[in-house]
Write a protein that binds this DNA or RNA. Structure first.
Lengths: 159, 159
DNA sequence: ATTTTTTAGGTCAATGATAATCAATCATGA
DNA sequence: TCATGATTGATTATCATTGACCTAAAAAAT
């Protein structure tokens, strides 16, 4: 299975990995030639896989000596991490976006897979609660607590 | 009737079981062809049997090279433990009781400190939501999701 | 100094290939 | 019989690829 975007992503990641620095510089045209594709394919890969949500920043320049610089955002201390996450989530977020963020955070080892699972459960609970508001009126706090607690614990319990 | 969903579930479970990894990747279309059913049948099986509450996470992509990845997070079925916890929690529970249960579970190393924190955040959120019902009317789902997600992540990062 | 040319990268819309959602219908078991 | 779970297919959303056209920066020409 040939998935060009995936290949290009992997190549860029390997470059980043091999670097001492937290960034790499590319020439769009050369990379496109290397993968025998149209130059705008590179933009697509960057737009879809090296976003701030995924922990990257892009800088570039046109004309002679043009380049594309891919910077991996590093959060040294907890405060930076929090700021970064706060920026990404913003005031509101969709379930799909949240799901992707958690995927990224697990990839980056900010959270474990079990923690991700717990958060997913809480998000589903929140969404459901929001969706069927009516239920709210009939269900007391204790019942809601019992339900979410069971869901979360059953989700993470291991043999 | 033969119960297609059950068959598909069993097939996916057997795939997971045969893997070294804790996940399998499928192509929805192929699986549907294999079971001679409509593709959305696969979604139904995943939605009803491979939820986070049951210890699974689903990742997927559309378009060319599309796939569905089923990740098994918890190692499943310690039936007695689940039954035990189910008995303890019961139909309803107070915040204080829940807190004590989590303390015990952490002591016994069923959950980590961070996981406990996550669960407590979700419980607080649930309690608050239940208490201030009014807010519900003014706050949309995205805002609720953003709030709980931030609380959970911030809680775990500074822990 | 200004204009023109060259050389880069950026944007966008079209297309084809999947997967997700939703509402309607059907089947089963209590 | 009724409630719940299962099945289906029409519609919608997302992803990857391509190429035509646009913009910016530096060099070359005037």
């Amino acid at each position: 299975m040939k998935n060009l975007s995936e290949d290009i992503e992997q190549y860029i990641l390997s470059l980043l990995d091999g670097e001492e620095e937290n960034f790499v510089s590319l020439r769009r045209k050369e990379l496109a030639q290397m993968f025998e594709c149209v130059p705008s394919q590179i933009n697509y890969v960057l737009r879809s896989r090296f976003t701030p949500e995924q922990g990257y920043l892009i800088e570039s320049r046109r004309g002679e000596y043009g380049y594309i610089k891919i910077v991996k955002i590093s959060c040294a201390n907890p405060e930076e991490k929090i700021q970064h996450i706060d920026d990404i989530i913003g005031r509101t977020i969709t379930f799909t976006e949240a799901h992707r963020l958690l995927e990224t955070l697990q990839d980056r080892e900010f959270i474990t897979k079990r923690e991700r699972l717990l958060i997913e459960i809480a998000l589903r609970q929140t969404e459901e609660t929001s969706r069927v508001r009516q239920r709210f009126i009939d269900e007391d706090t204790g019942e809601m607590l019992a339900k979410i607690l069971k869901r979360m614990l059953f989700g993470i319990i291991t043999a």
